[in-house]
Amino acid sequence: MPWEDLRLALEDAIAAEGLTAPTVSHFGDMLARTAPDLGHRADLYTHAEILSFCSVGVAARLVTEAAEQIALCPLSIAVYALPGEPGRSYLAYRRPPQTGAGSATAEALMQRLVKRAAEGG
């Protein structure tokens, strides 16, 4: 689906889980803005944002399982579109590295959010 629709569907999916509104990182804009100074292409993405959000219950389970999983908090999902692929967009997230109950809970939440967003909210 088009990036704008998927981005809105992701935000709706996060809200449907009862989570607070996400913090948005305008990643694509930052890359385009810094391209002249850093020497990379300005058009790596047509659109790219990272939505970060927190579930206290999931966070507590993650860090109870392994203290270093604090680095996963807040959880985040990227929504992006690539040049040359009009009408197509993608979702991506970091999977927890552990295999315990906390990681499984986080993975299940992320999968629900991605699935709901991909289905249009």
Rank of each mutant, 00 (worst) to 15 (best):
W3D: 07
L6E: 05
L8N: 12
L10N: 07
L10S: 00
E11H: 13
D12T: 13
D12R: 14
I14M: 03
A15S: 09
A16T: 01
G18L: 01
G18E: 03
L19D: 03
L19V: 07
L19I: 10
T20G: 10
A21E: 11
P22F: 05
T23P: 00
V24T: 06
V24H: 09
S25F: 15
H26L: 13
F27D: 08
G28Q: 07
D29R: 14
T34E: 11
A35K: 03
A35Q: 11
A35P: 04
P36E: 03
D37P: 00
D37Y: 02
G39K: 06
R41V: 05
H47A: 08
H47G: 04
H47K: 12
A48T: 01
I50M: 14
I50W: 04
L51C: 05
S52V: 03
C54F: 00
C54W: 04
C54I: 12
V56S: 12
V58F: 06
A59G: 13
V63I: 14
E65Y: 08
E65L: 09
A66L: 07
A66K: 14
A67C: 00
A71Y: 11
C73S: 05
L75P: 07
A78C: 03
Y80E: 06
Y80V: 08
A81R: 07
P83D: 06
P83T: 01
E85C: 05
E85K: 15
P86Y: 03
G87P: 01
G87H: 02
S89L: 07
Y90C: 02
Y90R: 15
L91H: 11
A92F: 08
Y93F: 15
Y93E: 00
Y93P: 02
R94Q: 15
R94P: 10
R94E: 13
P96L: 09
P96M: 08
Q98G: 13
G100D: 09
G100V: 07
G102R: 04
G102Q: 03
S103C: 06
S103Y: 05
A104D: 15
A104F: 04
T105A: 15
A106G: 06
A108S: 06
R112G: 07
R116Q: 14
A118P: 03
G120W: 04
G120A: 10
G121M: 00
